[in-house]
Design a protein around this nucleic acid. Structure first.
Length: 191
DNA sequence: AGTATGATTGCCT
DNA sequence: GGCAATCATACTG
């Protein structure tokens, strides 16, 4: 069975990914935070159409889109919908579970909670860089494991982080109560 | 060819 | 809370 339907819209894939486990060369953890982007979205890299940098986002779904952020960090996305749509999901945080010693060495940091709490940190911990851009997630070094069915994943959502446009679109998804998020989600609205 | 701008992080005050 | 680091991409002239 297919673990995740990457041909679905980005916000749907972003939701499905919460609770799944992502490994790169056996190192990684449980996905606890994602954000969705698509071409109709002013905050997306693909909003202005295809360029050499964002080309992978217009490629086949289920592949990686890796880009450099602020000249020093790498950020990792999964491509969604059919090729040509320019949609994807940014992975923002993991709960470290596999290869923790390797991740600590790469990050030069002991504290588990901060190993993968943020898109740049996550990429550094997993050893992700430009060589993985446009690579298929179904093949090594990638590995994607289903959420524990018994776990009953509870999802929270809110506005995305670090963008200057479409800030009202609630396309940030998180695992409720996780302490490995890049930032806390706002408290549930009072009724 | 020159400049403005980040889907960020970590260190400083 | 403020800001520097650091550079590929995109845009302007």
């Amino acid at each position: 069975m297919t673990l995740i339907d990457f041909s679905a819209p980005a916000h749907e894939v972003a939701r499905q990914l919460i609770g799944a486990t992502l490994l790169v060369d056996g190192v990684g953890g449980r996905i606890v935070e994602t954000e969705a982007y698509d071409q109709s979205d002013p905050a997306s890299h693909t909003f202005g159409g295809q360029t050499p940098r964002n080309g992978a986002m217009f490629g086949p779904p289920g592949h990686a889109y890796v880009y450099r952020s602020y000249g020093l960090h790498w950020c990792f996305n999964t491509v969604c919908r059919e090729a040509g749509h320019g949609a994807g999901v940014l992975l923002r945080a993991l709960e470290p579970t596999h290869g923790i010693a390797t991740m600590r060495a790469r990050r030069g940091l002991q504290e588990l909670r901060l190993l993968c709490a943020g898109p740049g940190r996550l990429a550094q911990a997993l050893g992700i860089d430009a060589r993985l851009n446009a690579q298929p997630l179904a093949l090594p070094p990638f590995e994607l494991l289903a959420p524990d069915a018994a776990a009953g994943v509870e999802i929270v959502l809110g506005p995305r982080i670090g963008i200057s446009k479409a800030m009202d679109v609630p396309w940030r998804f998180g695992l409720k109560g996780s302490r490995y998020l890049s930032r806390a989600f706002a408290a549930a609205p009072r009724s």
